[in-house]
């Protein structure tokens, strides 16, 4: 069993397909919806946590792609210019998901992308503007 977060982007005409039913029924995947934005007639974006057998999740993702839904792992959609980070801690102040934390020995920033809920508060909170999240 693995647990992994994905960002899904839907084309305008895919809104009526019961894809989550198929993920559960056909691939035995547990779904946790963490964030959803739907712009009717335009597009929709979802942050999902998928839990299940590794190959089932792979097959599920393949199924989604066939439905014209873009499905990419969350960590590929988070862009963080780590080499420029000064470890000030400002982003950890707003990260209530516990994805961005300070290591309390080294006082360096630690970023566990799998805990990110795409609240996007870190984007303006970073005084060096090192975060970008490609959700929409």
């Amino acid at each position: 069993m693995i647990k992994k977060r994905f960002i899904l982007n839907f084309p305008p005409d895919s809104g009526d397909k019961p894809f989550s039913y198929h993920l559960v029924k056909d691939y035995d995947i547990r779904i946790n919806i963490l964030k959803a934005e739907v712009y009717p007639g335009k597009r929709g974006s979802l942050l999902l946590e998928l839990q299940g057998k590794k190959d089932n999740i792979e097959k599920g993702v393949e199924y989604l792609n066939k439905q014209n839904i873009i499905c990419e792992s969350l960590d590929k959609r988070i862009h963080f210019k780590e080499e420029k980070c000064i470890d000030c801690g400002n982003c950890t102040a707003v990260c209530f998901a516990g994805s961005l934390t300070m290591n309390r020995d080294s006082w360096k920033l630690e970023f566990d992308k799998e805990k990110c809920v795409v609240c996007e508060l870190c984007i303006p909170a970073c005084p060096l503007h090192l975060f970008e999240i490609d959700f929409r």
Binding site: D87, C88, G89, N90, F96, M102, R104, S106, W107, K108
Partner: peptide
């Protein structure tokens, strides 16, 4: 503050630095 939480009026509050201790070191 450096432990990660403080208590104010009975409420636990998460702390975060805004200056860099690693750079200061």
């Amino acid at each position: 503050l450096q432990s990660g939480t403080i208590k104010i009026g009975g409420q636990k509050i998460r702390t975060a630095p805004v200056s860099s201790l690693s750079k200061a070191r």
